[in-house]
Design a protein around this nucleic acid. Structure first.
Length: 561
RNA sequence: GCGCCUAUAGCUCAGUGGAUAGAGCAACGGACUUCUAAUCCGUGUGUCGGAGGUUCGAGUCCUCCUAGGCGCGCCA
């Protein structure tokens, strides 16, 4: 279904295009091709409901000043059947369109019919897109960076789905390689230490208390039977046990955070199925692999990287990069037309080489988007909380959820663009005060629910929009609120396509604000039945959109607060 | 040294080449016998880090400079 906004915009765009063509055939305006002009809502309300820049874009080709072009176009624009009340040439050559209020009311019955589907669009045309995010090492707990990635990735996936993409959420489990080896050593030492053996803990091991807890759990289950086991096999047992436990903990935490994955992908499977070897063979066949000092190198410099990259070490083991290449080939081979990865800023150096690998394998690197998110600084009591993974001292996502709650945490991670460094103020996120934008939005929803509850108690009901005199909603506060509801589908699809969930956070906040303004100046339940009915429709529609926005952000929409 | 990101109001940040650059917070002053005051209304704020350039038009694009963050491993 076309939205009210698309309807009215396409009508005006058509009228403008036709005017330009007619002016050309009449010899009044000379140009070779029609430029890609825009029709958008101007920032300033005085500049009308929509404005187009077409005259400025045509000025050069036409060989006359923009305002002159605008005048000619203006005289040719016929707005039959449209809502255009008047138009005006302004500024450097904008044509401003002032519309009758009528067109915005169309959105209310649309929202009523579509309900929670309002905001969805066909923008994505069912394109298969994969969003891979968090993909934390399964050797420990989730930290703030993982948390931000979780909130961003999950919200992006929500947005993409709503915008008509076929979305798969995926978590890549790094369950092999050096770090797992190291993990195993740490577990082994902790195990032996539990039995009184005085063994120094490896310098670069996993120092966290959680490793000790894990080992205690294993001892509870299996006791001392590993003391006599062959060390290699023993370590394997430790790793199996701990990986499963850690992964389960990660899954549980993410679930508590409102994140559900479609696929949990094991790195190990790439090794076991031979996919990794196969992809290296393919790259070798294409001439991108060479040997140097006993190791195999990939010519990433051919793709703009600063230096070539090792894919197989001289000891014969493949690097993480090699597995990542195989993984991304696997992604494209599974039929994903668009692959989105969310990485921490500390991994930005890998973008060129991974994109290069994708290109070397014959895929279009433009179909791989890597969203880099800047790091999170945690503030508490006005001070930065220093975290060190080495020492095992850091605030985990679990801690965060239990301290500030899931809703606040998710909102705070998503309200800034991924590009911006995030200062996470725990006191603010926790505060149940006016400062906290999460409550501001949720409160709008709760207020609406309260109105509807009271209506219900009085035995009233919300009439169908089609039976209401919607034009009674003529107050500025009402019109602005409705106008904002009209924007929702565009906001969703723009945020989705650009992978910018912070836009939705902002939209939700603005929408809530417009509702609060309306609420404070106008009563919904009144003696004027006609007006009450129209306002009930408006309020109900606002509730739908606020709830939708909150849900897309992964937040709850409380009925009362 | 090289690469990526960032620099916008006192603070935290929006701002897809368009008109007079916005919001929240903080500050001050108002509004609850009325559907929840977790709300609303009013009052101020800018050499958009600096210098050039492209353009009818630059916070936005290009170049250089400055400052901060991150990276530059046969780690992941």
């Amino acid at each position: 279904m076309k939205s009210a906004l698309e309807n009215v915009k396409s009508q005006i765009i058509m009228a403008v295009s036709r005017a330009a063509e007619k002016a050309k055939t009449d010899g009044k305006l000379n140009y070779e091709f029609l430029p890609d002009f825009v029709l958008e809502a101007p920032r300033e309300k005085e500049h009308g409901d929509f404005a187009t820049n077409i005259a400025m874009l045509l000025a050069r080709q036409a060989g006359m000043p923009p305002r002159k072009v605008a005048e000619i176009l203006d005289s040719y624009i016929i707005n039959e059947g449209a809502w255009v009340a008047r138009k005006e040439i302004a500024g450097p050559g904008f044509i401003n369109f002032y519309l009758d209020n009528g067109w915005v009311y169309e959105v209310l019955p649309q929202i009523e019919v579509q309900g929670d589907k309002y905001g969805n669009s066909e923008t994505g045309l069912g394109k298969k897109v994969q969003v891979e995010f968090v993909s934390a090492n399964p050797t420990g707990l989730l930290h703030m960076g993982n948390a931000r990635g979780a909130a961003l990735g999950d919200t992006m996936a929500n947005l993409l789905r709503s915008a008509g993409f076929a979305v798969t959420r995926e978590f890549y489990i790094n369950d092999t390689g050096n770090q797992i080896d190291n993990f195993g050593k740490s577990l082994e030492v902790r195990y032996l230490q539990q039995y009184g053996q005085d063994i120094p803990f490896p310098e670069d091991g996993y120092h966290g208390q959680d490793i000790i807890d894990t080992i205690k759990g294993l001892i509870e289950r299996d006791g001392d039977k590993y003391l006599t086991m062959e060390p290699g096999l023993r370590k394997k047992n430790f790793i199996e046990y701990a990986l499963e436990e850690k992964l389960q903990a990660i899954k549980n935490t993410l679930q508590d955070f409102g994140v559900e994955y479609d696929v949990w992908f094991n790195e190990r499977s790439l090794h076991e199925t031979g996919a990794l070897e196969a992809v290296l063979d393919e790259l070798r066949g294409r001439g991108y692999i060479y040997e140097h000092e006993g190791a195999l190198w990939f010519k990433t410099t051919e793709f703009g990287d600063e230096k070539d990259e090792v894919v197989v070490r001289s000891n014969g083991t493949p690097t993480y990069f090699a597995a990542d290449i195989a993984y991304h080939k696997n992604k494209f081979d599974r039929g994903f037309e668009w692959v989105v990865n969310i990485w921490g800023a500390d991994h930005h150096g890998h973008i060129k080489r991974l994109k290069g690998a994708v290109k070397a394998l014959g895929y279009d690197p433009d179909n791989l988007n890597i969203v880099i998110m800047q790091l999170v600084r945690l503030f508490k009591g006005g001070e930065i909380i220093r975290m060190s993974k080495r020492s095992g001292e850091f605030v985990t996502l679990e801690d965060l959820i239990s301290e500030v709650g899931r809703d606040a945490a998710r909102y705070f991670f998503v309200m800034r663009s991924a590009d911006s460094h995030l200062d996470f103020d725990m006191d603010l996120a926790k505060s149940k005060s006016t400062d906290n934008p999460v409550y501001y939005i949720q409160y709008a929803h709760a207020r609406i629910c309260s109105i509807l509850r009271q209506l219900n108690e009085k035995g009233g009901a919300i009439p169908p929009a089609g039976e209401c005199a919607l034009t009674l909603l003529a107050e500025p506060a009402e019109l602005e609120l409705i106008r904002k509801l009209v924007d929702f589908p565009v906001e969703v699809s723009e945020a989705a396509v650009n992978l910018e969930p912070h836009r939705l956070a902002r939209y939700a906040h603005e929408l809530a604000g417009l509702f609060h303004v309306f609420y404070n100046s106008h009563r919904v339940i009144t003696d004027d039945v006609e007006l009450q009915n129209a306002r009930l429709v408006l309020v109900k529609c606002t509730q739908t959109v606020v709830r939708r926005a909150l849900h897309l952000l992964g937040l709850t929409a409380p009925d009362s607060m």
